[in-house]
Amino acid sequence: MALKFPYRSQYPNVPPISTEELASKYDAGKVVIIDVRSKIEYNVIHPMGAIHLPVSKMTFVRDLGELIAQHPGKTFAFYCNGVTCLKSYEATKKAIKAGYQNCYVYDAGIPDWAIHYPEKTLLLGKPISNPEKQLIPKSEFKKKCLSFEDFKAKATGPNTMVIDVRDHIQSSGKLPGLEDARSIPLDVFIPNFVERKAHQDKTLLIFDQVGKQVRWLEYYLVENGYNNYFFLKGGATAVIKKQIYK
């Protein structure tokens, strides 16, 4: 089934590069692939050799210029999480606006690359050997996402632990009915909780800011043997918006 690209029309001056074109240049050593997502997303999965340079970084344009100077004559492909993710478009737009040449958006993103070239993809630091088993389908992830009502109801059950993985910048206070949630920022939660296999006997109820970081957190949970866990659909933002517009 051919991919659809709903946001290309919003970026008419940002040239795309297809998965096949990118792979050809990759094999020939003629491209620098740049991951513009967060560090956790990059650490979970990325093409072998991809360079992490988040578009959210204040010095993105300057750092990109230094990178381009180190790779004269090469193509630069910016990617993020696929056809509905705008980070790669924004990164390429910034690069072109800064006057950098040979910059393309790889808007099929890491999902398409991993499916077509698993042997050229690192998942938690290791090449993918069995994509059907190792890659978590979005449909399976959605089964772990609960509405706020169901999330709160499950939180009242026995042997449960509610964990808020937002950092101090994202956090906008406690959620109603979840005031006792433990606050453990994601960059602390992964090494100090998940990788230590803490509380695997409990049901973990985890929420982030907008329900996207937990998509990548799930890989760490599965890798470390967690089975009984759920996420808040849409994250804290969905709950806050619902409260505001009641």
Rank of each mutant, 00 (worst) to 15 (best):
L64Q: 05
K233M: 09
I240P: 01
V36N: 00
P47M: 12
S171E: 12
A91L: 06
K241C: 14
L146C: 01
H168L: 09
P111G: 10
K4C: 12
S24Y: 13
H46A: 05
G109Q: 05
G225F: 04
Q213P: 04
I110L: 11
I40Y: 03
F148D: 00
Y100N: 09
S183Y: 10
P111T: 11
E179W: 03
T156Q: 07
G234F: 02
G125Y: 09
K97L: 14
P15S: 09
I169A: 13
V105T: 09
P191N: 08
P127Y: 08
I240T: 09
K120S: 13
Y219S: 00
L123A: 03
R182V: 03
G73D: 00
I68C: 03
G82L: 08
R8Y: 05
D208I: 02
G211I: 05
S88Y: 08
L53A: 04
I240F: 10
T59Y: 14
C80D: 10
E132N: 15
T92A: 11
Q70A: 15
P72G: 06
K144R: 15
I115T: 14
H168M: 08
Q200H: 02
A181N: 05
L3Y: 13
A91H: 05
G49D: 11
K30P: 09
Y229L: 06
D150V: 02
P111V: 09
G177Q: 03
Q209V: 10
P137G: 10
R62P: 05
P176A: 06
S139E: 15
Y219M: 05
V36E: 07
I34R: 04
I96R: 08
V14W: 01
R182Y: 03
A238D: 10
E218L: 03
R196I: 11
K25E: 14
Y100E: 08
T121G: 09
I110G: 01
E140L: 13
K97I: 14
A236Q: 00
A153P: 07
D150S: 10
K174T: 01
Q70N: 15
M1P: 12
V83T: 12
I136E: 01
K202H: 06
Y26Q: 12
I240M: 11
Y26R: 13
I17C: 08
V239T: 00
A2Q: 15
F60D: 08
I96W: 04
E20K: 04
E218H: 03
P72V: 03
V61D: 05
K242F: 07
A181S: 12
R215A: 14
S56L: 13
C145T: 07
E90P: 06
L86Y: 10
K138H: 13
D112N: 13
I96N: 06
G234I: 00
A153Q: 12
T156C: 01
P176Q: 08
I136D: 00
V165F: 06
Y229E: 00
V210Y: 09
V31E: 06
D63S: 11
G234R: 03
K233T: 08
G29W: 12
P16W: 07
R62E: 14
K202D: 04
E223L: 08
G173M: 04
V194T: 00
E21Q: 10
Y219A: 04
M58G: 13
H116M: 14
V214I: 12
Y89D: 01
S56W: 11
H199R: 12
I96Y: 09
K120V: 13
I96A: 02
S38F: 06
K152I: 01
G173F: 01
S139H: 13
T84F: 14
K120E: 13
H168W: 09
S139A: 15
